[in-house]
Write a protein that binds this DNA or RNA. Structure first.
Length: 356
DNA sequence: TAGTCGTGGTT
DNA sequence: TAACCAAGACT
């Protein structure tokens, strides 16, 4: 139940947000919001999907590109899968792009091109979980949903000096966050807590001296502000090995394949090659050629393992490969590849003579 | 439920 | 350098 102190806290934070809100391409400023300007639910949803586990700085250009190419959800719903995956390349967590397209198509076909405006209905859509359903319903539709992301977990854990490690502390933090969530301006409030976490109540070296909540903050009073929230230690990352084959035809076409929908880099373009495991798995090249080893390996770190990828490079004639397809020079853009594949390209292309 | 799923910046 | 971290979802 919200009491006076909770009301004071949310009011203090909204006052701070009115003065310090960050500017973002998808955001309506608190001043404009007060004048009645409503955010576009499509822009709110798109930005929230892109921002999952991803920094604002990384998202900005992708958001502008997507809204330029596909200004409305119905435009995105009508897009080709390969075009959307290519546009997402480099942003990571590619299941988000697959679910983004699924969600756009459901909204277009089953909701007449308009996003549902409740937490429960949003939660049913592909790629929308508890956080995103709460954020979109609050920011786009003024619902007083309880928005709990990593920022909120950190801010609330400090405010109440919750010492239970995450993720066990999640239910407790959600309940505490619910007590603070106001009925008025829920969208601004949600964005305010996240701005506070991103700019002041940061993971390390929080700027308590300029924090609007420093007075009531129990962690600060206890000197625990840099210790909370506690987290369970993560497992060490193993090193996996693999081999990738980069074949270029004399006309400049490259041999690529679309990876399976499920699993790592699902649905993205990649070079044919072995699986990735702690010992190099048995495998065969995608076609017979005079493969050369450029020597240098591609090193890349994923969420749960390090990869050391050996390369085999060849200039080939007009042959039919056992795997993949040749992508013509004119339609091949290295930027359409996920980062590990683009690193391999950068190394391999340097070993081959230029195309006429 | 705990593992899977990217990337680039920061410390 | 290696670890940590960022507006989580899915299975």
């Amino acid at each position: 139940m919200r009491d006076d102190s909770a009301m004071n806290l949310s009011t203090e934070l909204l006052d701070w947000y009115d003065r310090h809100a960050r500017t973002m391409p998808w955001r309506v400023s608190p001043a404009d919001r007060a004048r009645g300007v409503r955010p576009d639910p499509y822009a709110v949803w798109l930005s929230e999907i892109m921002l999952q586990q991803t920094t604002v700085a990384a998202v900005r250009d992708y958001f502008l590109k997507f809204t330029r190419i596909w200004p409305k959800v119905t435009d995105l719903a009508a897009a080709e899968d390969a075009d959307v995956m290519a546009a997402w390349a480099g942003l990571g967590y590619y299941a988000r792009a697959r679910n983004l397209l699924k969600c756009a198509r459901v909204v277009a076909s089953e909701h007449a091109g308009r996003f549902p405006d409740t937490y429960e209905a949003l939660l049913k859509l592909p790629g929308i979980g508890p956080y995103t359903a709460a954020a979109v319903s609050a920011i786009a539709f003024d619902r007083s949903s309880v928005v709990v992301d990593g920022n909120v977990e950190r801010v609330i854990a400090r405010l109440h000096a919750v010492e239970t490690p995450l993720p066990d502390a999640k239910p407790e933090l959600t309940a505490l966050a619910a007590d603070l969530t106001p009925e008025a301006r829920p969208g601004d409030y949600a964005q305010a807590v996240m701005d506070l976490g991103a700019t002041i109540c940061t993971p390390r070296s929080p700027a308590c001296g300029i924090c609007p909540w420093s007075g009531p903050c129990r962690a600060r009073a206890m000197g625990l502000q840099s210790e909370l929230p506690r987290k369970r230690p993560k497992a060490a990352r193993p090193v996996r090995q693999g081999v990738a084959y980069l074949a270029r035809r004399r006309d400049g076409a490259w041999l690529l394949e679309t990876r399976p929908e499920k699993g790592l880099l699902g649905g993205m373009l990649g070079w044919p090659g072995s699986d990735w495991a702690e010992a190099v798995p048995d495998h065969a090249p995608p076609l017979a050629a005079d493969w050369t080893d450029p020597g240098a390996e591609v090193r890349h770190t994923f969420t749960h393992f390090h990869l050391s990828l050996s390369l085999r490079v060849a200039q080939v004639g007009d042959v039919t490969p056992d795997r993949g397809r040749f992508v013509p020079r004119d339609s091949f853009r290295p930027a359409d590849l996920p980062t590990v594949m683009r690193k391999a390209y950068d190394l391999a292309a340097a070993t081959l003579p230029p195309i006429e």
